[in-house]
């Protein structure tokens, strides 16, 4: 990532291989976003700083940001969806509910 990319894009990929990107502006459902030369359509409204799925993420698959595991999918998440507390859970201090 460099500064010019940040300025140009509406979303930023923080590490190659991440399955989520971060919104740099508020995104509206239906917006077409560019990531690494490919287009992706936003399936939800996504606030500034929030995450968008870059590809389909299956239930129990790892969610990867900064090249690190930040949690797992609680349900199947389709590419272009908002990724947040409603569909991701932490793997740490897990009460095993």
């Amino acid at each position: 990532m460099n500064g010019e990319e940040l300025k140009r894009s509406k979303i930023v990929l923080l590490s190659a291989g991440d399955n989520v990107a971060v919104a740099l502006v508020p995104i509206q459902k239906g917006d077409i976003l560019e990531n690494s030369g490919k287009n992706i359509e936003a399936r939800d409204d996504i606030d500034f700083g929030h995450k968008i799925a870059l590809r389909d993420i299956k239930k129990d698959d790892n969610v990867i940001k900064y090249g690190e595991i930040i949690g797992v999918a609680k349900e199947n998440i389709m590419a272009g969806s908002h990724v947040h507390v409603h569909n991701v859970k932490s793997l740490r201090a897990d009460k095993h509910e």
């Binding site: 971060v22 919104a23 606030d47 500034f48 700083g49 929030h50 995450k51 969610v63 940001k65 900064y66 690190e68 595991i69 930040i70 949690g71 990724v83 947040h84 507390v85 991701v88 859970k89 932490s90 793997l91 740490r92 201090a93």
Partner: peptide, 15 residues
């Protein structure tokens, strides 16, 4: 933090 887009403790910690 959650309003600001952070979903889990892992995500917060790595940052």
């Amino acid at each position: 933090n959650i309003r600001g887009g952070i979903s889990t403790i892992e995500e917060k910690s790595i940052a």
